[in-house]
Design a binder for these strands. Structure first.
Lengths: 163, 163
DNA sequence: CGCGTGCGGGCAGAATTATGCAGCGAAGGC
DNA sequence: GCCTTCGCTGCATAATTCTGCCCGCACGCG
């Protein structure tokens, strides 16, 4: 839980965000095709990395090509891992307020973290809204908001837990 | 093209039905695994055939293994109600929370849907805030939020109850 | 009947995706 | 500071999936 980069050029989460956008709006048949597009966007990655990105993002592949998982359909599993990574990478502070949780991140980190937050499919998280450096998480109740805030803060703590 | 699919006896459709059942209830990681199970069920097929079956069935593959397609790839849109079209195209889920309604959409779908929601001029909708994949609709009351949520959900599924 | 057409499915090789391993740079501990 | 730990990514290669080609069966026709 140390590690992570700051802005080593195109960051991982940034890259994944791009991938998500691309997959959502275009028909992507394979990783080579995706790699080619990313390259034209100034992001160079090899197929191995894409394979890992796609797996971590929980992206599905069907006859039509890649497909993003239904928002709110496929909970946890790998989404949890992605969230863990995103929290470590971007979370600056987290504060509960009524049934909301205000999360601060470095500028530019809000979107990627929000995506991970959504992917995690946490039951108490009804939805998120990301700005440039702030995320507003809407939960079912004030109690849920406080619990989630503690949870996220804990996730950032260096503590080896089996997973 | 006259001869229509005959029935090569106890196969194809039945095999595919079995495959669907298996995929729905078990975690199937690859085709070899599926072939092995089918064999134990008395159905012998090679991997190539499974590849074709899965493709034709529209089965998706993700980090968790194979997955049946969600019954809901509404293609159409219609020119009458912009909101109806927007909902069909972008709405992923909708949940009321206090006097708010949290609407989830695929990444990038929030804005267009929010615009449609505003245009609809619903009396209970005080305003909307759209992020990348979430819209926060503010309503006058919790009751109004719940009613709106039901309304939107219904709009998405006029009458379908599949899977 | 013998022939042409179409579908399903096997085989083997091509194409695509997944993964073990190693190197690099960053963050902490001392 | 110097060393250790840890995450991220490329490379090479294994694993998995897709496809072209071909055969065999059933059917409808001449």
């Amino acid at each position: 839980m140390h590690a992570r980069a700051k802005l080593t050029a195109p960051t991982r989460e940034e890259r994944r965000t791009r991938i998500a956008e691309r997959v959502r709006s275009h028909r992507v048949q394979n990783q080579a095709e995706l790699a080619e597009w990313l390259r034209s966007e100034g992001i160079e990655v090899n197929q191995a990395t894409l394979s890992r990105d796609l797996r971590d993002m929980g992206v599905l592949k069907g006859p039509e090509g890649y497909e993003l998982p239904q928002a709110g359909a496929a909970p946890s599993a790998d989404g949890t891992l992605a969230l863990y990574a995103a929290v470590k990478n971007w979370l600056a502070s987290v504060t509960p307020a009524e049934n909301l949780v205000v999360v601060k991140t470095p500028v530019g980190g809000a979107s990627p973290l929000a995506v991970a937050l959504d992917s995690a499919g946490h039951a108490d998280v009804l939805g998120t809204i990301a700005g440039d450096d702030t995320i507003l998480i809407v939960t079912r109740s004030g109690a849920a908001a406080r619990a989630l805030a503690r949870e996220l803060a804990a996730l950032r703590e260096p503590r080896k837990k089996s997973k």
